[in-house]
Design a protein around this nucleic acid. Structure first.
Lengths: 393, 393
DNA sequence: AGACAATAGTGCAGGGACCGAACGAATGGG
DNA sequence: CCCATTCGTTCGGTCCCTGCACTATTGTCT
């Protein structure tokens, strides 16, 4: 009852992975692709159908001789939910095994000043709303937070100091779902390798420009965590000795060079609306991009400085991690058109052939929640027997 | 015949891993520890005995009631062989599954000036000698080279330029063994996590001081390779902008700061025997250590500079990889007593709590061959059925 | 000294999962 | 209208693990 069940699980997972990576196909082709027998595949598919994970689709094109096969495809019977708690918003996204977005919402919320308990209550209510408004059964929940996480507890959160020590999972206990809590940049990195132009890339570095600089590193297909869970933290790399003082108390941290604060300081005087933290960040970035497009010298110079600073740091990351691509998210993606050229120049001067390994994220602000939903769904692909039979209609 | 065999393999591997990690024990205890049945364990052990991988040992102490068990322990019926080809020597080491060294040799050889084919012939002859002079059956061969490797071909080798493009595995084709070729620092890193004080550490950074600076990174128990196989290459990190010119043509590379050349330049004038490349490196290092112990100001200052430089770079590595420990090998280990204090000071100033995460390698010059032998042995632990029955007496 | 409890290891029937071959089903071509 | 071809299912066989019964060996208690 122990090890043969594992064989079954592994083979169910193999069929599921095959359908996910290569799209719908007939049982006969599944048998070829997995190396299993047609008989076994039939049995496996029957079980997956019963669990609501796959469904029979259309007949295959009758273009050739022989009996046409019945396509087997992933079903949307279950979904994973990603929640992001950030400084000024709450985002939720649900993903089904096909990769289809089943829910997406974003709620402006002044998380920084509200009590964590209240924010968690709101978030959990939103999750309940998601689960009530669709037929896919939720199998898991992942919460992204802008800080370092130990287990399900926030350990550090520079921009959400009230949240340090909060057990985020406890806020969703009434959902009765497995809850994972993780760093937002890490989840974004996972999102990048799970969908979009860099799907299935095994080695990727994700950099996100927010107030600070966040990073997530995927090596060998696995998220780099490190011995204490803070691996891949790029913001406080000491790259430029003896420079500006960072919020962490040290000097020369990378985020003092390429963080949002550094950009705005370089691009605008104190009275400038760009530097008004009361205004919406996206609007300010749009204004900045407008000035750059209009050819404003100071703005262009500031952006070039950021781009060069990014290149200097990215050179270190490329040399150490050797990623297939460095993906820029957050404000870096917003202003990418002005950053990429100086970034590539600085990178090319330091690491050979690295200039064309930089790309802008196409996932926008949904990266973290998307990664979270993907993580929540992962156990289904790893072990399909975790989904009870007849989970869906 | 396909998947149930995999079950068998996995269970054989589980028993083997249990014995390796926890030492000899009775079948009954093996059953408890693996979760398998006593009957199954008996069957598995019988098969492993037949393959020469385990053997029955002494009776267990009759200190308590009940029938005493018969200890089952790893046997030395097979071995993995590690070969290191370096600038001025050829080293070979054989390891059996118990971790016992079955052979160890080191031959001074001017590899840099000899033809690769000749060196390979010598190396292969030594391997044949190893195999002839003991009863353990060789199951694999790993060759460490001081450079980057693609497949079994040397891609770059700063100190062995003649070897670029050489297919190292081809030189051992007559052995009829699976041959792996890998970077020496990578193998050393694996050696550090497979034996010694840091065995089973999942996240470790290994730094070796040679002519250049080599690095190997283990994250999550896996060697970091990167998308093109050059991950973890620390020598050419651009840390100090616009400084000394490196052999790679760029400026500010880390190895221009902490490489052997930098140390010797700082510690001795051109005429000094320390800087005579004709003399044995170990002797020169011993001389240097002697001067330092005698309190020579210039020597101490040079060493402190190296230590500080190491700390600056190590800070970046610790921040990014978050290793449990940074292990220093090569000449860093030789002169560790003079380097550790300034290194720790520089590290502590940049990353909190990192100072006690530095240690000196205890494997000395055998690290690379030891890691190679370990890698060669790995398939046996992963899938014990690869070893034919009655492989040993 | 003898009975009993405790622990180690083996033998055997049973069941789960996969494999291989044979069979019915559906389609295009001659 | 028959046949080749391909798809999917059914059925017997094999492998391996499990659970239980059984033997073997030792210490302890009476």
């Amino acid at each position: 009852m122990q090890t043969q069940g594992q064989v079954r699980s592994a083979n169910l997972a193999a069929v599921l992975a095959c359908l996910r990576d290569g799209g719908p196909r007939s049982r006969a082709r599944l048998a070829d692709d997995t190396g299993l027998t047609k008989a076994t595949v039939s049995s496996l598919v029957a079980e997956l159908v019963e669990r609501g994970l796959v469904a029979e689709g259309a007949q295959v094109r009758p273009g050739s001789v022989g009996r046409p096969g019945t396509l087997v495809e992933l079903a949307g019977g279950v979904c994973g939910i990603g929640v992001e708690i950030n400084v000024d918003y709450l985002a939720v996204l649900a993903l089904d095994p096909r990769g289809a977005v089943r829910w997406e919402s974003r709620l402006a919320l002044d998380v920084a000043v509200l009590a964590p308990a209240e924010v968690l209550a709101r978030a959990s209510a939103t999750v309940s709303e998601v689960r009530a408004n669709q037929d896919a059964t939720a199998v898991g929940l992942t919460v992204a937070v802008p800080g370092q996480v130990q287990g399900t507890v926030v350990r550090t959160a520079p921009n959400l100091p009230r949240w340090v020590g909060t057990d985020v999972a406890a806020g969703f206990a009434d959902q009765g779902l497995p809850v994972t809590v993780a760093n937002d940049a890490d989840l974004s990195a996972l999102a990048e390798v799970s969908a979009g132009p860099h799907a299935h890339v095994a080695d990727l570095v994700y950099l996100t420009g927010e107030v600070g600089v966040g990073g997530g590193v995927v090596t060998g297909g696995q998220l780099l965590r490190g011995s204490t869970g803070v691996g891949g933290e790029v913001g406080h790399l000491a790259l430029t000795p003896g420079d500006a003082v960072c919020g962490c108390g040290r000097t020369g941290c990378w985020e003092t060079v390429v963080g949002l604060a550094a950009l705005l300081r370089a691009a605008a005087n104190p009275g400038d609306p760009l530097r008004d933290p009361g205004l919406d960040l996206e609007e300010r970035l749009t204004e900045l991009a407008g000035r750059a497009r209009a050819g404003d010298a100071r703005t262009l110079e500031a952006l070039a400085g950021i781009g060069t600073g990014l290149g200097v740091g990215a050179a270190v990351l490329v040399a150490l991690f050797d990623p297939a691509v460095v993906v820029l998210g957050g404000y870096f993606a917003h202003l990418g058109e002005f950053l990429l050229d100086p970034l590539r120049a600085a990178l090319a001067a330091r690491v050979e052939g690295a200039a064309d390994r930089v790309a802008l994220s196409t996932l926008g602000f949904t990266a973290a929640v998307r990664g979270g939903a993907h993580v929540a769904l992962q156990p289904v692909f790893d072990n399909p027997t975790t989904v009870p039979p007849e989970a869906s209609a």
